[in-house]
Design a protein around this nucleic acid. Structure first.
Length: 473
RNA sequence: GGCCACGUGGCGGAGUGGUUACGCAACGGUCUGCAAAACCGUGUACUCCGGUUCAAUUCCGGACGUGGCCUCCA
């Protein structure tokens, strides 16, 4: 069965045909490392991790290259460094910020069950490639130098009568409209008001590198050029899949395409452009001013990463998602069930479900895949060992190890107010009351515990002796 | 203002021109001193208004709502 993917550029779902089945190549825009990643940042990381796993399953682990960059040169990083380490020289402070934030990011996405990409290039380690692309663009007449800046001209790109794509094709907007709608405060050194920066001069104290294109003043790269450079270095001039959040379509990805295609005289940069939908929190957009800026780290203090991963995959990646506590609880309930069903099943005895694979091959339909997991689970519940083993193996493929996802354990961790000794004492009292058939007292104790959110369950142990366990509601 | 996405039952969330998504919750039953869990069973949907069609939740147009981009934010 074929893999079909939705391509933002052609606006259709198409069969995926790799340029080289021995080396399927995917690039995804990674984090700018200046602060804790929030749950919105986690979405592309999780979504493209699933795609990475699927591609490895189809083409073989050794035949997929996944590149996710780390942006470690950026004004926000500089601002954060100056704020957090005012005593240090700026460059040293920047290194501290990027190292610390990078480590946090890795710890967070590891906890979300994401594999590390094949390569995680850093922007600052690819300044040479950026300069080379810029030189090519200047030589080709697509970019020009002005006041120590290098600017890219989309108009020059569209004027070139060649196989190059139209500027604006990816984001579905015309250059004429962009020119007409441009903001008034265009920098004076720009020839056209849609021109964007490839390279700019550094202020004193800022990170700086030798400039390209004959500029003597040291400078630093613009935002978009880094991805063109890193994708080129690690995946080549033309590769299979480029992914990221839908907000990156314009201007970031549009400009990447322009740079790469003009520099290397290519018709396409990536054959499939994939964009995940946006995320809201409890029905509102996430913002620091609303106080609902939810970091991955915050959520991980209450929930296992697998639960968050499952919640993210309940929704198809292109749909908007409203991140709610209620949905987190539902995800937790589902995983708890899967863990209980598969506890005694070994993944080596299982096969990855064809239904689940079929759903994933249909543009990563993870909702459908999860529905199939539930069906496997119900077969496993009715005693089919093979179904349990298959469920286990399929969960593994999706990145769910089903470890430490017992709902009761999670709730007990969250409820620091629970006094287990006191609960056990009450249960012992109740057992005594039941033994003398004082059900009034027995029920009173049940109610007392219920008021604390504790539900008790009467059962029998292996020898048939009555035993009472408790759970949090 | 321009471009775009989304709007499904109590909740989450797939999908489809005419036939049960799936899960959670709810309800009924078995079980239980009573419960819980487990198992069995049941119900309710496609924002609104037009159009196309034998037939639309599904296609087209419009309205309303939510969100995104156009301001180096995933």
């Amino acid at each position: 069965m074929e893999l079909r993917l939705y391509d933002t550029l052609s606006r259709e779902k198409r069969a995926f045909v790799p340029l080289d089945a021995k080396n399927v190549r995917m690039y995804v825009c990674g984090p700018t490392v200046y602060d804790f990643a929030h749950i919105g940042n986690a979405r592309p990381v999780i979504v493209f991790d699933v795609l990475f796993r699927l591609l490895r399953h189809i083409y073989g682990e050794a035949h997929v290259t996944y590149v996710r960059n780390i942006t470690d040169v950026d004004d926000k990083i500089n601002d954060r460094a100056a704020r957090d380490f005012p005593g240090l020289p700026l460059n040293e402070a920047i290194r501290k910020v990027t190292e610390l934030t990078g480590k946090q990011f890795h710890a967070d996405v590891d906890a979300l069950g994401c594999l590390r990409p094949s390569v995680e290039p850093r922007a600052t380690e690819h300044i040479g490639e950026m300069r080379e692309i810029i030189e090519r663009l200047v030589k080709g007449g697509f970019a020009y130098v002005a006041e120590d800046h290098v600017l890219f001209s989309p108009q020059a790109m569209n004027a070139a009568n060649s196989l190059l794509p139209e500027y604006g094709a990816l984001s579905n907007r015309s250059l004429d409209e962009m020119i007409a709608g441009a903001r008034v405060d265009v920098a004076p050194y720009k020839k056209g008001n849609t021109d964007f920066v490839l390279w700019k001069p550094s202020k004193s104290g800022e990170p700086s590198w030798p400039s390209p294109a004959g500029i003597t003043a040291p400078g630093r790269p613009g935002w978009h050029i880094e991805c063109s450079a890193m994708a080129w270095k690690h995946l080549g001039e033309h590769f299979d899949i480029h992914g990221g959040g839908i907000d990156l379509v314009f201007p970031h990805h549009e400009n990447e395409v322009a740079q790469t295609c003009c520099a290397f005289h290519q018709q396409r940069m990536a054959n499939y452009w994939m964009h995940n939908g946006f995320l809201q929190v409890e029905g509102e957009k996430m913002s620091k001013s609303l106080g609902n800026f939810t970091t991955i780290r915050d959520l991980l203090s209450d929930w296992p990463g697998e639960v968050l991963r499952f919640q993210m995959l309940m929704t198809h990646y292109r749909s908007p998602i409203d991140w709610t506590r209620h949905a987190t609880e539902q995800a937790s309930i589902a995983l708890d069930g899967f863990q209980q069903i598969t506890a005694t099943a070994s993944p080596e005895h299982g096969n990855v479900s064809d239904e689940v694979l079929g759903a994933l091959r249909d543009d990563l339909n993870t909702s459908q895949a999860i529905a199939s997991l539930h069906q496997l689970a119900s077969r496993a519940r009715s005693g089919k060992y093979q179904a349990a083993a298959d469920l286990r193996a399929t969960c593994e493929l999706l990145g769910f190890g089903l470890k430490d996802v017992r709902l009761q354990d999670i709730l007990r961790r969250q409820r620091s107010d629970i006094d287990e000794a006191q609960i056990n004492a009450l249960i012992a009292e109740r057992a005594a009351a039941r033994a003398r058939k004082d059900f009034k007292e027995s029920d009173r104790i049940r109610d007392e515990l219920a008021a604390k959110g504790v539900v008790i369950k009467d059962g029998r142990d292996a020898d048939g002796k009555p035993v009472t366990t408790w759970e949090l509601a």
